[in-house]
Design a protein around this nucleic acid. Structure first.
Length: 606
RNA sequence: GCCACUGUAGCUCAACGGUAGAGCAAUCGCUUCGUAAGCGAUAGGUUAUGGGUUCGAUUCCCAUCAGUGGCUCCA
């Protein structure tokens, strides 16, 4: 995603090193096959490295990767210069006569139309080649002066993957090799170390270790089962949502998981969203669908009685359970699942109220981000694309342009930084998504704020305005806390399992030093439970050290070690999960400390 | 869905043609200990599932299922 990268990346030496490494890799791969057998496509630098896509007569293996990497080092050692040559299209096509993908690219350039990803270009570019040693590639550069400028001890081939030509699943599938390249071996080591560290906080690993969720083959892929610890976190998130939504004037509703097909025809889901829906079940000739979104039911609640402008805005909230049939390869731990519970709400408002309502949702994001200390994110404003009208998007260009301008104005007036991305909207309107990254660097949408000018019309929603006329409301779909699945997946990684006290499944563990203090430990446990603290006394026969270790591994924020001394003073030897200690803390003092941290949803332990 | 890889006890891994083994967790004893692993014993597996090759399959082959890395797609 281009907006992730600094504009300047393309001007850096690292960019040229990676781009050149891609060419060197392509040479090494070409040498493994008879002339004309291997087809080259594109090989750009990306964040942290580069890739190159090939169409090859056989599949590459991990052993090939080692051989390719070895050959790359040999090529690098020869210090082959990179030479640029500008040619006309005719000559270019001659040179790449046996490279159909290159011919396609040259034709794109010739027509002045398209770059290597098939994206339109502003002006007709020149056609240039870069050659080094035996390898020549259609390429606009830039490169390093010669292959020796690539540090042979700072490169590594990372993985083999499939990728569609021009990212189109209807086009041939290519083999992609990902590589990384740095200036120094130390930078490479740091990068690899960073990847290792990221794996440790992967929610799939931590979610298992912390007993938050599980999957069962018998239940099905993408259908997570929340363990008690996960259930606790869900309860806390819902309590937070209830509080905040009450303060922002929302009302809570409840709707079924299942509806007749007609409702989804009317909403537009069946024409535009059918691919992502579970197939219907047939009841006496009537088809019922499990809901992929809650909106149609909320619309019917709005429509349950006549509405006046005085009632507006109406804000209906529900932690609704939805089911979406995501393709099998798209599933990803908790972050991408087939059953999910959304922090959903629909705001019905007039056009005049739109900006206030839309910005109030953005303000709600900010409130949440502050609570969770979320700092790294991007607001992405997704708009329609003209040629998707009637296919991906409801066919009403006038309303698309109008509502997009309303959102743009609202964001600008509110001074909210955002990037605008065409052709990413929901089928019913433009949206502003909050993009974040998983521990392993995968980007995904956390929260969303969407405009809908389509469903209110198809549902015949209306209210009486002050002039006594019927007016169609706008609908805002919003999910600041995402879904439980994605939010908790994200939070596990965000906190690396060290949840703030209010979210921690177990908030305090009491550890008696010998069983002589068991009774005292149980006393403290019930004192804490009485004020709503999730506490547990560990009365096992392990030594204290082992009990501490067990509590540490579960990231319990507070460990209360109690021996004879503590019993005498009515105190606890407080140990925090960061290893620090506050011995001799009076029990009452600890109780009020933990109560305060929970009540204020503090990120601090002390 | 597509391409590649992987699938052994709850977890992390070993054995890789001669009918499975360790550590941790669990259970039961012993231990009663001052801030990240005390000691011992017991139990736990039709080696994802279903076929095939073989005298013999966890190991080789095929299919299915699931997971992983990507692509596509998304809260």
């Amino acid at each position: 995603m281009s907006y992730q990268q600094q504009e300047k990346y393309e001007d850096t030496e690292l960019y040229r090193i990676r781009h050149s490494a891609a060419h060197v890799m392509a040479q090494a791969v070409m040498e493994m096959f008879e002339p004309g057998e291997a087809k080259i496509t594109i090989g750009p630098p990306i964040e942290n490295g580069y890739y190159y896509d090939f169409d090859l007569p056989r599949n590459l293996t991990p052993e090939d990767l080692k051989a390719i990497e070895k050959r790359m080092r040999q090529i690098i050692a020869k210090h082959h210069p990179f030479e640029k040559k500008v040619v006309n299209a005719e000559r270019a096509k001659e040179m790449f006569a046996d490279q159909p993908y290159k011919i396609e690219l040259i034709e794109g350039l010739e027509e002045g139309g398209f770059d290597e990803y098939g994206e339109p270009l502003e002006e007709k570019p020149e056609i240039s080649f870069y050659s080094h040693d035996t390898f020549t590639d259609l390429c606009r550069g830039p490169h390093v002066e010669h292959t020796g400028k690539i540090n042979p001890s700072a490169i590594k081939l990372m993985s083999i993957a499939g990728a569609y030509w021009r990212g189109d699943e209807n086009k041939p599938q290519l083999q992609r090799i990902y590589g990384t390249a740095w200036k120094t071996s130390q930078e490479l080591e740091e990068y690899l170390h960073m990847l290792e560290e990221a794996k440790k906080r992967d929610h799939r690993k931590l979610g298992k270790e912390l007993d938050i969720y599980t999957f069962s083959d018998e239940v099905g892929p993408g259908l997570p089962l929340w363990l008690p610890n996960g259930g606790t976190i869900i309860e806390e998130l819902e309590d937070l949502a209830k509080e905040v939504e009450l303060a922002h004037g929302y009302e809570r509703v409840r709707t079924p998981h299942l509806t007749k097909e007609d409702l989804f025809h009317r909403s537009g889901h069946l024409p535009y969203y059918a691919e992502s829906m579970y197939p219907p079940m047939d009841m006496d000739g009537v088809k019922y669908y499990v809901k992929p979104m809650n909106c149609p039911m909320h619309h019917k609640i709005f429509d349950a009685r006549p509405r006046s402008y005085r009632d507006l805005p109406i804000r209906l909230a529900e932690y609704g359970t939805c089911y979406r049939f995501e393709k099998s390869g798209e599933l990803f731990g908790l972050m991408r699942v087939r059953s999910m519970q959304m922090n959903d709400a629909h705001i019905y408002c007039s056009e005049d109220d739109f900006e206030t309502e839309f910005m109030d949702v953005i303000a709600m994001y900010m409130e949440y981000f502050e609570i969770f200390d979320i700092e790294k994110y991007i607001m992405r404003f997704s708009t329609h694309a003209k040629d998707g009208l009637g296919k991906k998007y409801v066919d009403n260009e006038r309303l698309w342009l109008k509502t997009e301008e309303m959102v743009r104005q609202a964001m600008q007036n509110g001074n909210v930084p955002y990037v605008e991305v065409p052709d990413e909207a929901a089928f019913y309107g433009p949206k502003v998504d909050v993009q974040v990254w998983s521990a392993i660097g995968r980007e995904f949408t956390l929260a969303t704020n969407q405009v809908d000018f389509s469903q209110p019309v198809s549902f015949d929603l209306s209210f009486k305005n002050s002039a006594g006329e019927n007016e169609t409301p706008l609908v805002i779909h919003r999910a600041p806390l995402s879904t439980h699945e994605r939010m908790i997946g994200f939070l596990i990684e965000h906190y690396a399992g060290k949840f703030p006290v209010w979210l921690a499944p177990e908030q305090a563990r009491i550890i008696p030093i010998t069983d002589g203090q068991n009774e005292y430990a149980l006393d403290i446990e019930s004192k804490l439970k009485a004020v709503g603290v999730r506490a547990k006394a560990d009365l096992g026969s392990d030594r204290m050290n082992a009990k501490i270790r067990a509590a540490q591994k579960m990231q319990v924020p507070y460990m209360l070690v109690v021996g004879n001394q503590e019993v005498e003073n009515q105190s606890v030897a407080l140990r925090l999960r960061d290893g620090s200690r506050k011995d001799g803390t009076p029990v009452d003092e600890f109780v009020s400390l933990v109560e305060d941290k929970i009540a204020t949803r503090s990120s601090e332990l002390l």
